[in-house]
Design a protein around this nucleic acid. Sequence first.
DNA 1: TATGTTAATTGATCTTGATCAATGAACCTT
DNA 2: AAGGTTCATTGATCAAGATCAATTAACATA
Lengths: 250, 250
Amino acid sequence: MSLQTSSYSHLDISNIKSSCATCSLRELCLPVGLNTQEIQKLGDVVSHKRKIPRGGYLHHTGTKFQSLFAIRSGFLKTCVLEQDGRQQVTGFHMTGELLGLDAISSEIHTCDAVALEDSEVCEIPFAKLEEISLSIPSLMHHFHKIMSREIVRDHGVMLLLGSMKAEERLASFLLNLSRRFSIRGYSEYNFNLRMTREEIGSYLGLKLETVSRAFSKLQDESIITVDNKHIQINDIDRLRLKMGNSSCAT
Amino acid sequence: MSLQTSSYSHLDISNIKSSCATCSLRELCLPVGLNTQEIQKLGDVVSHKRKIPRGGYLHHTGTKFQSLFAIRSGFLKTCVLEQDGRQQVTGFHMTGELLGLDAISSEIHTCDAVALEDSEVCEIPFAKLEEISLSIPSLMHHFHKIMSREIVRDHGVMLLLGSMKAEERLASFLLNLSRRFSIRGYSEYNFNLRMTREEIGSYLGLKLETVSRAFSKLQDESIITVDNKHIQINDIDRLRLKMGNSSCAT
DNA sequence: TATGTTAATTGATCTTGATCAATGAACCTT
DNA sequence: AAGGTTCATTGATCAAGATCAATTAACATA
């Protein structure tokens, strides 16, 4: 299974002409119910495509913010570099998601965005997006929802980091990935991780050894099958039970 | 020192007539540079005041979202209730801050907001705010910055929860409070905590005993002086050092 | 294909913070 | 002011996860 392949088959995009406008569909366009003219406006703004090879940077911490990026294909992580040189992963991002929301406030990127596989993004000049939002209320409203959703997502991670133990965190993480793959038309039971154990650990507030042990534990219980980066979920219900008390899966 | 008392003395609000429009000044109005007419528009939207007694709820998880709330005075916490009945604090909020951003996405409140002291808020009907945003670009832009700032803040907490140890977390927390008091015209070295050790612990991902021990440790080192809820910062530089590696203080 | 490099697993030990428990201080309420 | 309740501190013990270390597996590059 290749995750690089775009899969919009279940979405109605037949009325969209510009190939690049499609990149922001999932989050930015489709749910809003724009008319043809509005889609045209948005398409004009979202025009510039950019390819990022595996390991390449979409943006660096400290650089000037000008555009949001809609992921057209691929998989990226965002991370902050701490004084001591260690890095903390703040998120993993896949097709259809929007990057750069954190940079709006200071107009400076507060994190690095790194491609974990060859990726393609659409650049969305933020000033232009705001400009056309003024004439497309539903677009503005939808954008507010996207930002809000990001806040909810972060609260979920805070909850995870603040109150769950290692195994629960990993279960929560896998279920989250599973759901996101599923939404994009991939199997929710079989997928390849794009990130290392260390990156997972960084995201989950654990050391890589602890992540590895948690994987092994879940495998010993036959809940998942782990083959290096390939994960198979054998019993998603029991995996859900692992999360236990925590209300938020995010 | 009473924190209940509003303190806008260092801000120029001389041109604002409506007493309630002032409540959202710090975050929503002032920095934007609105003209008189625009301020009038905003004042019309932000008209309804609400008092919340200590221990009272501003909103409950699961209820319908209609309005943002700008804190006019007081101190609140937001928290989510987990299945097992334990609650996790997701934030502490003071004068001038905006509550409810998380609820925009689903139009359902995702957390409880509880007053930790007698508080007063201004209700900002969100639909109306969006409506007038369409005609006041700078207001819309400023609102986007506020949402973005919330995301940055949350990333900071994620970093804290994911990579700092108990004493570093508490140092970070105290410095954050200190800065926010300072911005509002209060002493950055002397303040009263509005929340219990348990609530601090919940927010920082620690047990109350650990919080208490961390306080004692910092006091033993003469960095702070703790007298129950009253905190005095004796050596803010050493307190900053305590945070160590972590890049973000939030 | 060989070889160096990076990533993953697993074991042994140590540390931090959680848990259990007891005491004392603050704060309502009447 | 008295009594109950909540809150905070401190000590003793325990457990989860970090750290240290060794081995193996996967991957990249010559």
